[in-house]
Every structure is written in C-alpha cells, then in structure tokens.
Simulated assay, not measured.
Amino acid sequence: MDVKEHFRSPVRGPRFTSVLGLVLLVGMPVLFVTGLLSYTAYNPGLGPPNDRTPDAGLLGFQLFDWPAGPSWLYWLTQSVHVIGGFVLIPVVLAKLWSVLPKLFVRPPVTSVLHALDRLSLLFLVGGTLFELATGVLNTQLAYWFPGSFYRLHYYGAWVFAAALAVHIATRFAKLRRGLRDEGGEELRAVDPSEETISRRGAVALVGAGSFALFAVTAGQAIGGPLRRTALLAPRGGADPGPEQNGFQINKPAAVRGITARDTGEGWRLSVQKADGGTVRLDHAQLRAMTQTTARLPIACVEGWSTGNQDWRGVRLTDLARLVDAGADDDMFVESLQRTGAFRAVYLRANQVRAGLLALEVNGKPLSLDHGYPARIIVPAAPGVHQTKWVTRLTLGRPA
C-alpha cells in the first residue's frame, strides 16, 4: 500500500497549505528584519564587547548607526520580534503538518534540481525550527545552548533567510495556484476520512492558538495591569514593591556578584579620556552636579519592558565635559559586576548626548538590584546597554 494512503485527513490540501504559507511569507520576513534591527541596536560597528559576532565577515554588516530616539524604538522592534515569534509557532506547526505527506513521496529525488529543492527545504525547515526554539528558550532564560545565544541565533537567521529566498523564488507560483485550490494533488488524501472540522475551522483553530500565545506573552512588553496576563513570560506577574523601585528587575545584584560593600562609601566613579586624565567622583559629588529628569523605558532582548519610569541623574555630556571630551566622542562604560555578559559596553556619541547617569528613579535612590549607586539610561537602547553599577566611563576610543 502507498504510504500516502495513511494520510487521510480531508483538511489537507493546496489551499489550506497556501493560506498558512501566505501568513508565514509575511510574518517570517518581519521577524528577520526586526532581528537585524536588534543586531543594529547593539552597535556592532563599535566592535567587542558590543559585537558578539566578531567572525561574521560579510554577514556582520551594520545597517546604520542606531538612533537615540524615539525612546520607545527598541521596545517596539524587539516586542514585535519576540511576540511575533510566539504568535507564528502554531502557524509553522500547522504548515509542517499540512505538507507531511510530501516527506514520503517516492522516489525522494528525481533530478538534480529536485535534490537542490529538497536540500533548500531542509535548511528552511531546520532554520525555522532552530530560530523559534532558541528564541523561546532565550525568553524563558533557559540558556541551554552549545555556545552564545546571540551568535547562534544570528547565524541561524541568515541560514533561514537564504533558504527562504530560494523557497520563494521556486514556489511563489505554486502558492498562487494553491490559494485557488489548484494543483497540490500530493497533499490531498487518496481516501479521505469523515470530516470532523472544515478547512476554515482548521485555519480558525490555528489562529486561536496564535492569539492564545499572544495573550500569555504580550503583557510583559505592554506592562501595567496586563503584565499579570503574561503567564509564559519570566517577567510577567505583579511589579515588585517600592523597595525595588516599583518595576521589574533583570538580573539582581547577587547574581552579578555585587554586594553592598562594593557600592558603599568607598565607591567612586572614574571619568577619563582614552588619551588623557581622570576625574574621580563620589556619590555626593555626583548629586551636587546639575540633575536632569527623563521619563524612559528599559526594553530587553527577551521582549519585556519596564515601562516608562522617571529617572533622575547627571547628563553624560556633563560628565564628558569634566575631561574636555568632544561632542563626537564615543563612551566606554564599565560595571562593577563580576559575572555575566556585557560587563562593559560602548555607547555611540549620539547616545552619550541623549543619555543619563541615573542616581534616582521614581523619586527614590536606585535600589541595589536596579544599579545603585549609578546606572546608565539611554533612550531606545537595548536593556543590556543600560549598564548597572557603573564604575568607569572612558571617552573616546582606546588605541
């Protein structure tokens, strides 16, 4: 008996597969583009430690210098990327189910072109599943990777994009025919079983699955009362109390090896030029400088946001003037933290002009977990660049 005769669902057919394919044709490129925007927001052109793909070669190009505004820019692009990834999971699974009979077509390869086509599908399906799986694990803070998530996810995205381009070039006409329910005989059941759900009902079921995933993940990005609906998100639930400044923490001080002793009376902020002198300031001296208030969010690569908070501190440009730094000087920011990535980052000159060294938030001193005694706040920058427990600022690029 033909193996295909085991697949008897009347739902399978060219139109059902093509409708799902059309959704993915729109959605997956959006994920790829927003992923590239996230990469650009890390300012890889500044090199390590910002760039986590130093061996990327031609794949490591930077689209443009990431702007320091509007303040919600990174929140928007990364929220679309992460939430969109969750929403498309049911569509991807349904699409793979719909074309499962084609896996058993015999002979498996009929020509060189057919072999290349099947090879591109292997990379497309593998790349899609790899990107979705690693993305979900990252949002769940489950770093079960044989290396850096940043690097693996980035390279996987390019494998997926190349395979998708080949797939679109070779299958777009077939997609158009499938939407008219033409062709695709290899997908239709030879001996269909009794219908238990219509194809429209199956599409609606997939849509309901996507909406359910949206409902239990989007709240961590939207914030406010909706944060409690983010049942599958580590940053869901109620906001912490006033002792934690009233909003979500990414990594607490203990996880990063920070103690109260590190941030006590002996703490000093060093401000220096790469080729010049150094100014050292204690907390009281920083508070004696002109203070500026800004209402800004922190948005993280995992897709969650603190929402807007009222930050108060010293403008980075005021600190740069203490060492006669120029308006076009980048800034190298170093933290007291002893463990984890991004213990130091570069900020571009446009970010320096827009950023604060925050000492307070929401009218109170920073809690230790939120970066006391001082942290960086820059509009539209990824959360990992909003460095906590700052100890040194270096203006200009080291030789």
Results as ranks from 00 to 15, higher is better:
Y154W: 12
R52C: 08
W158Y: 14
F104D: 06
A238H: 13
F214T: 08
F160M: 10
N138W: 13
W267L: 09
A161L: 14
D239R: 11
N308E: 10
Y143M: 12
G396T: 10
I222A: 11
S111R: 08
Y155H: 06
L336G: 04
P101M: 05
G340E: 10
G363M: 03
D239V: 09
G383A: 07
P398A: 06
R227E: 00
S71M: 06
G178S: 09
L395E: 01
S71I: 04
R312G: 07
G184P: 11
L58R: 09
D275K: 03
I258Q: 02
I258T: 02
Q337A: 15
T34D: 09
M289G: 09
P242G: 09
P373N: 08
T387C: 13
G276Q: 07
G355L: 00
F145A: 14
Y150C: 05
S9R: 05
A173N: 13
M28V: 13
F247L: 07
A344H: 09
G266L: 04
V361G: 00
A169D: 03
A212Y: 01
K102E: 13
G126K: 11
L96P: 00
V206E: 04
F211V: 15
A215N: 03
G326P: 06
Y155T: 00
G257F: 07
G246H: 04
G57K: 12
R312V: 04
G184Q: 12
L286Y: 05
L24Q: 05
A204K: 12
G383I: 00
N50C: 11
V352A: 07
S367K: 02
V279D: 02
L129G: 03
T339W: 09
D181K: 06
A320P: 13
G85S: 05
T53R: 02
F149D: 10
D2T: 06
V82C: 07
K4L: 14
V92C: 03
V19C: 11
Y154R: 01
G340F: 08
R180I: 10
L100G: 07
K388C: 03
P10Q: 01
D318R: 00
L366I: 01
Y155M: 02
F342M: 11
D65M: 04
V91D: 00
S335T: 04
G13F: 11
L356P: 02
G223S: 07
V390D: 08
L25Q: 03
E302C: 03
W389F: 14
V384F: 15
R392P: 11
R268T: 08
Q78M: 11
V378K: 02
G241D: 15
Q337I: 01
V19P: 00
V109K: 08
V80I: 14
P240M: 04
A202S: 01
W144L: 14
G355C: 00
G127P: 09
A173P: 10
A133C: 08
F130L: 14
T394V: 15
R256D: 15
R353H: 05
Q220F: 08
P101H: 02
P192H: 10
G184S: 13
Y150W: 15
G60H: 10
L73W: 08
A341C: 06
A204I: 13
R235F: 15
N43Y: 07
R118M: 03
A189N: 09
E186H: 10
V216G: 03
Q248F: 03
